[in-house]
Design a protein around this nucleic acid. Structure first.
Lengths: 149, 149
DNA sequence: GGTGAAAGAAGCCCTGA
DNA sequence: TCAGGGCTTCTTTCACC
């Protein structure tokens, strides 16, 4: 992993459709050299995967909501159960298990507040292990990126 | 935008390297038909872009931190100024302007707690307009996805 | 890491429904 | 108007230097 690798990563984390040829001109290597590096970076897991970023608003998921959740009992079984549910819930984009005041922070995208209300019914109220949760509605998605470098 | 489009989107939002041929077999269309649809979806902005997802831990950004920030004065000028700073701060992956208790929720990736401490020095303490901030350290990135569908 | 040839995928036009 | 077939062009891959 050298400077050339880092340059490649900086480029593809913003645009994965760049051809090896374009990248090679950008950083001063030959096209096959870039491809060999990309292959290595993928196989070694530095590049985890390539994804298409969809527009939530163009697909009718206008609202982004952030929720802090506090569990009642923080046993291994309850934690794993909650994590499993969040992973399989479609409107949960992100779920973090954290130190501090809340146990979990969730980031959801929903069509409207009604869909969020249904989510809370299913996952918070019908779930005896939720102590409290705090909802924040996102007014501006100021920055949403997965850029690491 | 029909069911076939949605099927295509569901596939490429998880793996943008799928070939049109693979997708076509999956959903029962010809390869050129899939390509036409993908092109249309990109041009119309339903697919915003394609990115490579990098592994934060493999690149030495082991820690994920969630910060809630409350500003002192919530004037237009102060809000825009804060947003601008967060957009350009490298370790800020996501920044949301929200209703509720906090004004902003940030998601950061940093090398270590020292790097976070430097971030707070630069952006919170040397910035007279920050009223309070609350830090949560992520213990488990339970789910991190940008899947919309 | 670079070069060149071969395999493969994408883009385009045209036809047919 | 939109899906499918076939051709062309570009990209990737692999063997070799």
């Amino acid at each position: 992993m050298d400077d050339k690798d880092l340059e490649i990563l900086r480029l593809v984390q913003r645009d994965a459709r760049l051809t090896a040829d374009t990248i090679s001109q950008e950083i001063g290597l030959s096209s096959p050299a870039v491809q060999k590096r990309l292959k290595r970076l993928r196989e070694s897991g530095v590049i985890e995967r390539d994804i298409a970023v969809l527009s939530p608003s163009r697909l009718g998921r206008e609202m982004t909501i952030i929720v802090d959740v506090i569990l009642e009992r923080e046993s291994r079984r309850h934690l794993d159960e909650f994590k499993r549910k969040m992973r399989s819930a479609r409107c949960v984009q992100q779920c973090y298990y954290t130190t501090g005041e809340a146990d979990f922070t969730l980031i959801l995208t929903v069509r409207d507040i009604k869909e969020y209300e249904e989510f809370t019914q299913e996952h918070f109220f019908d779930e005896s292990n939720i102590s409290r949760f705090r909802t924040s509605v996102v007014m501006d998605r100021v920055k949403v990126s997965l850029d690491v470098l």
